[in-house]
Every structure is written in structure tokens, then in C-alpha cells.
């Protein structure tokens, strides 16, 4: 039976690399190769930084050494940084969550309705032209020293790239595939649910990753404008007292927060749309 013959012959060249131990070793090697260069650069920067204070005598109110920053972090962790980190992290996560919900809703609405798209697109782009730094104090006046203005600022900073990337993903479906789905009796809703939304997931996650790096910046802006706690508040207080080491601790915590959020998004993406990477590799 010719059909069966080709079946088995094509069956053998199905890639089985995932289970292959030699490919796992190769993967490990590739990972090491990927991690070594940035680690080396960081090390060099760290040494130069430390030398700036220790060897070249840069005063600590301009650039404290890494060891001074570390000392300040452990000294002030309990009474200052632990609570400030929790406050800022809360703002970041809630704001990010709001941005996802609002961003995806807007993207879906604009994708489904060309009228809404033409009506709201200029407004949407315009919203990005308004400097957040200017918006933040206004929000602080309206909502006071509460969580609300920070959440709004974070959401405002994050939602745009989510909207744009999600819309791009929704529209990226091959028009022929839409036609095929129509002849398979798919309603508009079925096309959205079974084709467009899954197809949009990889771009949606791209949008998320971009906004994940902005989120903590938004929270700090919000806190600069008016707050009683949080890493931004600590930075403002420390700056006025020339406690530069404290400022740097806050910067490092914020950086770590952004990177963690970015990595978390990437991990979720890997679980939610594993096919995206496999298709790319093909």
C-alpha cells in the first residue's frame, strides 16, 4: 500500500531532538555561551565602579562604591527598603494587571470594529504624546497620596505597547486561513476564539515584555509626584540628604524588579504558546 509506505517513511524524519541527550548537552553549552559574555561585562563594570571610589577617590555622595551600597542596603533593609519594595511592587503589579485588562480590551474592540479603530486611533496615539511626568502630579492632586495615582501612571505607561502589539497579532492571521475557517462554518466569534486570539498570543507577549520593563519606571514617577512610602519616595528623601548610597540601593531594587517581571512574562509565554518557538525553528 503506497499510502502506508510513505506514511512510515515520513514518520521517521519527525524531529525527536527534545529527548536526545546530546542535544541537551548542546543546549547547556549554548546557555553557558549566552550567559558568560554579559556576566563578564558586568564583572568588569563592577570592578571599575569599586575602583572609582577606592582608587581614584570619587566622593561617596557622587558615586558610592558597591560595598558601601551593599552596606547601606543591609543596614536599611528592615526599616526602610523592605516596606518600600512591597509598596512599589504592589503598584507595579496592579498597574501592570490593569494595563493588560484595559490593553487587551481596547485591542479586541478596535480589531473587531473598523469604525472604533478610525475613531480612537488618533486619541490612542495622542495619549502617548502626553508626557507622563506632567500627568503624575495632576493625578496626585486628584487622588491624593493613595495607591490609585501610581496604578494609573503604571497602567498608562504600559497599556500602549500591549494594545499595539495585540492588535498587530490579531490582524496577522493569513486572510486565506480566515476564508478556510468561513467555509468550515466558523462564525465571527469562532474565528476570533479559535484562530485570531491564539495567533495573537506571541505578539501579545512581546507587548507585555516591552511594558514589563517600563512598569517600575511608572511607579517611581507616580511616587515622585506624591507619596509617603515606596522606592521613589525613598529616593526623593535620600537625594535631598545627599544619601546617594540609598538612591543606588533603590535603583538596584527597581532594576531587579523590572528584570524579574520580564523573565516572569517570558516564562508564562513559554507555557502558554510553546508552538511559537517551534514554528520559528522550523
Amino acid at each position: 500500500m503506497t499510502v502506508m509506505e510513505t506514511m512510515t517513511s515520513t514518520g521517521t524524519d519527525v524531529p525527536t531532538s527534545d529527548a536526545d541527550p546530546s542535544s541537551r548537552r548542546r543546549w547547556l553549552g549554548a546557555t553557558v555561551k549566552r550567559i558568560l559574555p554579559p556576566a563578564g561585562i558586568l564583572l568588569v563594570i563592577g570592578i571599575l565602579w569599586q575602583m572609582a571610589g577606592d582608587v581614584f577617590g570619587v566622593p561617596d555622595y557622587i558615586l558610592p562604591t558597591l560595598s558601601e551600597i551593599w552596606a547601606s542596603a543591609s543596614e536599611n533593609w528592615e526599616d526602610t527598603f523592605s516596606s518600600a519594595t512591597v509598596v512599589t511592587l504592589t503598584e507595579v503589579l496592579i498597574g501592570f494587571g490593569v494595563a493588560i485588562v484595559v490593553g487587551v480590551s481596547i485591542a479586541l474592540a478596535l480589531h473587531l470594529s473598523p469604525v472604533l479603530r478610525t475613531a480612537f486611533m488618533p486619541l490612542l496615539i495622542g495619549s502617548q504624546a502626553v508626557p507622563i511626568v506632567v500627568i503624575a502630579p495632576v493625578l496626585a492632586i486628584i487622588f491624593g497620596y493613595t495607591l490609585m495615582p501610581k496604578v494609573i501612571v503604571v497602567a498608562l505607561i504600559c497599556f500602549f505597547s500591549i494594545v499595539v502589539n495585540t492588535m498587530h497579532g490579531l490582524a496577522s492571521v493569513d486572510p486565506e486561513l480566515i476564508k478556510v475557517m468561513r467555509t468550515l462554518d466558523a462564525s465571527r466569534w469562532a474565528i476570533l476564539r479559535r484562530v485570531e486570539i491564539p495567533a495573537a498570543l506571541p505578539s501579545f507577549f512581546t507587548g507585555l515584555r516591552i511594558s514589563a520593563t517600563y512598569a517600575s519606571v511608572g511607579a517611581v514617577f507616580g511616587e515622585f509626584a506624591g507619596s509617603l512610602d515606596g522606592l521613589g519616595y525613598v529616593m526623593i528623601q535620600a537625594t535631598s540628604q545627599l544619601q546617594t548610597d540609598m538612591v543606588f540601593v533603590a535603583i538596584f531594587i527597581l532594576t531587579f524588579m523590572s528584570i524579574s517581571l520580564f523573565v516572569a512574562v517570558s516564562i508564562v509565554e513559554r507555557f502558554v504558546c510553546p508552538w511559537a518557538r517551534k514554528e520559528d525553528r522550523r
Binding site: D174, E176, V180, V195, P198, W275, E279
Partner: peptide
């Protein structure tokens, strides 16, 4: 209707 490309859903 079935076109030339298989257009299977990768997910």
C-alpha cells in the same frame, strides 16, 4: 474550500 497551503493551526 481547500487552498494550496495547508494552513493548519500550529497550536
Amino acid at each position: 474550500w481547500m487552498p494550496q497551503r495547508d494552513l493548519l493551526l500550529p497550536w
